[in-house]
Design a protein around this nucleic acid. Structure first.
Length: 309
DNA sequence: GGCCAGGTTCGCT
DNA sequence: AGCGAACATGGC
């Protein structure tokens, strides 16, 4: 537990228009609770970060409109000098610099996407705070419902995340690799994960903590280099690698064609109502290249709506 | 209670 | 190459 009294810093951000902060923040935090360290309530998206040295709390709110977007980012630091990095993370958490205009140019003439880009106009692709966080969340989400995934993720964060109390409110950051790598078999028991997933995540955390695996460096790699490096990890297949391209590596053309929900949605929107096979979904998606990360995000925005495809 | 969830690996043909 | 089983758990 860390308690502190440092002054918060405030910075104004001008995201790339169009940008719908409310829609993007809801998309980014869907299914998250305070336990995950992410909260979006009363127009403020808050997240506690843990970079190993400090535990800054980020608070992001909108002071603009979809076509004239403006954000205010407040950082509550635990020591001097960590606000610049926290501000950069805040920017990417809501995809402030994501430019959707190229995607819209393609999507407006597309049979499936044209209605989605109208409905979700201004939705940017949120980026995970760290590649490690996105990777662990993706692995524990494999093959299970999003409801179950949330339980598992909350258990992981509760068990291994660092806590900070601010004004009486408790926040928990997503655990760092070294905390996950050091976890005992006993402490894993509270996280109701399969032994196999525990093994995958533990090995990745160990490699990341020791420095032999530099996940953040994948952000500057090409898509095929990053995919190759990710799939080389035990527990990571094509589905997980493609989700990381989209959610953590800022790549434009990721497409998790193995995803059952995506296959179902595409069968409903573009097919005969039957779930597409993975190969059918991949073939169909070629027409959306090189904007498939946006196409995937918008399809999931629709899927997550009540009564969605 | 059985089956399926926003998959992946491993061991068989 | 391609197929099936195992993996843990919550919800219908």
């Amino acid at each position: 537990m860390v308690e502190d009294m440092l002054e918060p810093s405030k910075e104004r951000i001008m995201p790339t228009a169009p940008f719908d902060f409310d829609m993007t923040a809801r998309f980014a935090t869907r299914g998250l609770g305070r336990h995950a360290g992410d909260v979006y309530e009363s127009g403020v998206y808050s997240k506690l970060l843990d970079d190993g040295d400090s535990l800054p709390l980020i608070r992001i709110s909108s002071t603009g409109a979809v076509d004239a977007p403006k954000l205010e980012v407040e950082v509550m630091p635990t020591n001097d000098g960590d606000t610049a990095a926290a501000n950069r993370t805040a920017r990417s958490l809501v995809g402030a610099d994501d430019d959707v205009t190229g995607f819209y140019g393609m999507a407006e003439r597309d049979a499936v996407l044209s209605s989605l880009v109208r409905e979700f106009r201004g939705l940017h692709i949120p980026q995970s705070a760290t590649v490690f966080e996105a990777l662990v969340k993706s692995i524990l989400s494999q093959q299970i419902s999003s409801q179950v995934a949330r339980v598992l993720r909350d258990g992981l964060v509760d068990a291994f995340g660092t806590t900070r109390v601010i004004d009486g409110a408790e926040w928990i950051a997503f655990p760092r690799p070294d905390a996950v790598a050091a976890a005992s078999v006993e402490s894993w028991r509270a996280v109701k994960l399969s032994k196999r997933k525990v093994a995958y995540i533990t090995e990745i955390a160990r490699a990341a903590a020791s420095g032999e695996l530099d996940l953040e460096a994948l952000k500057t790699a090409t898509a095929s280099e990053a995919t190759e490096a990710l799939i080389a990890l035990k527990g990571v297949g094509a589905w997980t690698a493609n989700w990381l391209l989209i959610q953590a590596l800022g790549q434009p053309d990721g497409f998790p064609h193995g995803d059952l929900a995506l296959q179902r949605a595409m069968g409903n929107l573009a097919g005969d109502g039957q779930r597409m096979t993975a190969d059918e979904a991949l073939d169909y998606s070629e027409r959306w290249s090189p904007y498939r990360s946006h196409a995937t995000t918008y399809l999931f925005a629709a899927i997550r709506q009540p009564g969605g495809p």
